[in-house]
Design a protein around this nucleic acid. Structure first.
Lengths: 194, 194
DNA sequence: AGAGAAATGCCACGAACGCGGTATAGTGAA
DNA sequence: TTCACTATACCGCGTTCGTGGCATTTCTCT
C-alpha cells in the first residue's frame, strides 16, 4: 500500500507501522501526516483506542479505517472515536487512493456496505414509536422526573399541588407499566419517549 | 429528471408528483416502485413524514432524498425516518442515476458533504466518556437500579445484604453527584455510562 | 509489611415514594 | 346530552429511600 501511495502524484507515505504503540512516539514530533490509514484489528492497543490517541495528538489529522472487520459494533465505535472514513480490505488499492483524495477534500469515504450499515444505525437509533398514550401534562411531569426532581419540586415548578403531581405520577406508572421512578426513567430513554 | 431516468437503460420513472399527498393514494395499489426520489422541502406534508408513510406502505421501497437542504437536523431526521440515501440538488443528473444504481445494489449514496456530516454526528453522539471512577461492583448495582429494581431486590439478586447495597448506592450517588434514583438513571443514559 | 481501595455488613431516622381510595371541573366526541 | 378523557386536588398507610455514621475483610500495589 505504501508503495502504491508513493507512486501516486502528490502523495507520500512517510511512515508505516505494525501497531499503534510503535506509531505514537513518532507522532510526538512535528512531522504530522494529513491522513492516517489505520487497521483496527491490531496487536496490543485496539485501533479504536488508537484513533482517539491520534486525534488527541493531532486533531487535524484525518483517520481512515482500512480493515476486514465490518460488524456494526466496530464500525460504530470507530466512527464515534473520530474516524473520517471506513474502507474494507477487499477494496482495490485504487479505491484506497481515491478515498484518501476524498477525505482530504472534506468527504467521508466509505464502502458501499459500510455506508449502508451506517444509515441503518440511524434507523435503529431513533425508532420513535411505542406510544403509551401519555397526555401532554403527563409528558411534562415525566420530563421533570427524568431530570431528577422530587414530586414536591415538580409541584412547585408547575404551580400544582403535591397531590396532583402524585396522581399524575400514578397514571404515568400505570401507562408505562412500571412501578418505580428508575423504571420509568429507563423506559423514557430506552424507547425514546418525550 | 424523469426524462433522464427514462432515457437510461433498465430504468423507468413510473410517476412524478409535486407533493406526498398526491403520491400516497397512487401507492396503495400494487404498482410499487423500487426507488423513490424525494425532496423534503415540500408543501403540506414534510418529506420526513413522507418517508415514514412510504416505508409503511412498502417497506422494501428504497427512499433517496434529493433536496437543497443540508442542515444537520434535516439530514438526521431523514435518515432516522428510513432514507437509504441523501443527495443534494447540486448533484449533476448523472450522479443521481448513479445513486439509484448504487442504492439498488445495497449501498447508501450520499454527497461527499453529507457523508461527512453523517460521520460527524457519530462523533457528537458518543464523545461523552466522562469517567466517574465507579468500581465494577458499583456499575453492576447501578445496572440493576437502571432496570428498575429496589435496593432489596438488588440485594437478593446479588446475594448481598440490604445494607451493602445501601452503602454502594450511597457511594454511587456521591461519585455521580446526584441524590435521587432518577438523577442517577438519567446520567447513565445521558452520558452513556456502563 | 503496610497503605489504600474495594467490598461487605450493620443501625437509625426523617423524608419521599407507591398505591389504595375519592372527587370536581372542563372539554370534546358520540 | 350523555360519555370518556384530562387535569386538578385531597387523604392515609405502609414501604422504600437518602443520609449520617461505623466496622470488618479482602485485595492490590508499593
Amino acid at each position: 500500500m505504501a508503495g502504491m501511495i508513493n507512486a501516486t502524484e502528490g502523495m507520500r507515505c512517510s511512515h508505516a507501522f505494525l501497531s499503534c504503540e510503535e506509531a505514537l512516539p513518532v507522532f510526538s514530533k512535528e512531522d504530522l501526516p494529513d491522513v492516517i490509514l489505520l487497521d483496527i484489528g491490531l496487536p496490543g492497543m485496539s485501533g479504536i483506542q488508537g484513533i482517539e490517541k491520534f486525534k488527541e495528538l493531532s486533531p487535524s489529522t484525518l483517520v481512515v479505517i482500512l480493515t476486514v472487520y465490518d460488524d456494526n459494533d466496530k464500525v460504530f465505535n470507530a466512527l464515534c472515536a473520530g474516524a473520517s472514513g471506513y474502507l474494507l480490505k477487499d477494496s482495490p488499492p485504487e479505491k484506497v487512493i481515491e478515498a484518501i483524495k476524498e477525505v482530504l477534500a472534506g468527504g467521508a469515504p466509505m464502502n458501499m456496505q459500510i455506508a449502508h450499515k451506517v444509515l441503518g444505525m440511524f434507523a435503529q437509533f431513533k425508532p420513535k414509536k411505542a406510544n403509551y398514550g401519555l397526555s401532554e401534562r403527563e409528558k411534562e411531569i415525566l420530563q421533570y422526573m427524568v431530570s431528577g426532581l422530587t414530586k414536591q419540586q415538580i409541584a412547585d415548578k408547575l404551580f400544582l399541588s403535591f397531590h396532583t403531581v402524585n396522581t399524575h405520577l400514578k397514571n404515568i406508572y400505570t401507562k408505562l407499566h412500571v412501578n418505580t421512578r428508575s423504571g420509568a426513567v429507563s423506559k423514557v430513554y430506552e424507547e425514546h419517549l418525550l
